[in-house]
């Protein structure tokens, strides 16, 4: 990305960053960390115990379900190759810069920092690609800058639409996806715009 880089982190933002640093609720941090550590084992435990209580033959049931895993994973390969190749080529071609130039007058209207526009365009295409851009922005501007906060929020505001559509429909062999792409992209656009607006309200 060759977009212009602005190093100016306003005084007001620095103050906000400082105050939020003092307010860091450490119990919340531990809570969140513990939550993601415990969610999966808790789900498995719950399924096993309830199954045992209901006299389900848990081992046989597990094998029964697990068998399906192989066929589904193999079925999605052609769909996954098609979409990932297209996205990979698009990213490598540098076409994104053209779209950024094209769209930036529009996004300026809602106060989207120009630096975050590549993140917004990348998000529906590639989750890891967008995360890379967010990381880069936070390295340059700092994670507690407005740009850092907006790009972080953008990352969580929506999903990799094209990947999800290719994989989900691929698994059942659906080729005509009808209005799914339109709905997905409207969702992405609204999520990304909402990310900017809510950050402007919350972080000024």
């Amino acid at each position: 990305m060759t977009d212009s880089i602005v190093y100016a982190a306003g005084d007001s933002l620095a103050t906000i960053a400082q105050t939020s640093q003092e307010l860091t609720p450490s119990f919340f941090v531990t809570l969140m960390k513990n939550f993601s550590t415990w969610a999966i084992p808790a789900l498995i435990f719950l399924a096993l115990i309830l199954g045992w209580y209901k006299k389900v033959k848990v081992y046989e049931a597990f094998i029964d379900g697990a068998k399906e895993g192989f066929t589904v994973a193999i079925k999605i390969i052609p769909y996954l190759v098609a979409i990932l190749v297209a996205i990979g080529m698009f990213r490598a071609s540098g076409a994104m810069d053209g779209f950024v130039a094209l769209l930036s007058p529009l996004t300026n209207l809602i106060g989207m920092p120009a630096e975050t526009l590549p993140v917004a365009l990348m998000r529906p295409l590639s989750g890891s690609g967008a995360l890379g851009l967010v990381t880069e922005l936070m390295k340059i501007h700092g994670p507690d800058s407005f740009i850092g906060r907006v790009s972080s929020t953008m990352w969580g505001s929506t999903e990799t639409t094209f990947y999800v559509i290719a994989v989900y429909f691929g698994a059942v062999g659906v080729r005509r996806v009808r209005h799914s792409i339109a709905a997905g992209l409207v969702g992405d656009a609204v999520g990304l715009i909402a990310a900017v607006l809510i950050c402007r309200i919350v972080f000024g």
Binding site: L46, A47, L50, G51, K54, V56, A61, F62, D64, G65
Partner: peptide, 12 residues
Amino acid sequence: LGIMKIAEKGGI
């Protein structure tokens, strides 16, 4: 899918 099958049969 294995865990899901157990959850299904267990009625969750």
